[in-house]
Write a protein that binds this DNA or RNA. Sequence first.
DNA 1: CCTTGACTTCGAGTGCGCTCGAAGGCGGAC
DNA 2: GTCCGCCTTCGAGCGCACTCGAAGTCAAGG
Lengths: 140, 140
Amino acid sequence: MSSYSIAEAARISGLTTHTLRYYERDGLMLRPVERGATGHRRYSDTDLTWIDLVTRLRSTGMPIREVRRYADLVRSGAGNEAERLDLLRGHRSAVLAQLAEVTDHLGAIDRKIGIYVDRLEAQGIGPLTSSALEGVDSSS
Amino acid sequence: MSSYSIAEAARISGLTTHTLRYYERDGLMLRPVERGATGHRRYSDTDLTWIDLVTRLRSTGMPIREVRRYADLVRSGAGNEAERLDLLRGHRSAVLAQLAEVTDHLGAIDRKIGIYVDRLEAQGIGPLTSSALEGVDSSS
DNA sequence: CCTTGACTTCGAGTGCGCTCGAAGGCGGAC
DNA sequence: GTCCGCCTTCGAGCGCACTCGAAGTCAAGG
């Protein structure tokens, strides 16, 4: 079982040391990170695995306070798995909805890109009018 | 050619009146919105179409300042279509990267959900251990 | 012994994107 | 005439998630 300094944990997780301390302060860790003889933090593999999950939840848009709620549930031990499942499933739905929305918006932006491409290809062939370029095309 | 009060524009766009004024103040509109006799804003269809594009750019994560850069380009008229295209294409790439990342993270979260489902289905069949529940599974 | 550098705590500061409230103008219904 | 409702400007405030800096501790290297 290896352990890591906060600088190593930062390098591995991709977070800054400031953020790692901030997460711990803010109750996002399952328990306070262990300390070595000098009072320095020693991150365990379990800590890093947990931080990885936190990062995934954060990167998919879960607010800090909800990550903390989840951490609270895990910390309070066995017996609330159904609640944890609800929380994760709720988040999953939100993420899927967000993916669908972003994909839809991207489609409209793509059509806009198409307009510019057409226009640039047409340069020298016909005169340019700017009216079609101000909004998104009417098919949206 | 119809025109709309700020309240109507808010209802149509899904933004608040506060946000509509804020966008205008912040240089996100192509030009100041027209005013009626009483000094009240009158949004045109062109304005609403533009606001729709702004909303799509914002919803896909484009920062306000970059939307403003794009608005500046459109405002300055014809001749910079290539630059606009670059901006939109750059954004498109960023959005695709973000979609891929979120999808990947979601996969890891899904596996975690699977763990809870298995665990809940196994209730009464075997004893629970909590170790597997603290992190994401090792296949990530 | 002194410097270097990695760490500690604590609290304040930053950037973003709104969000809100105060104070006032104007037009129409009663 | 006065009340209502919608609008105006301006500037301050807020929530989120960091991000940073100051001041101090400690161990090892030269």
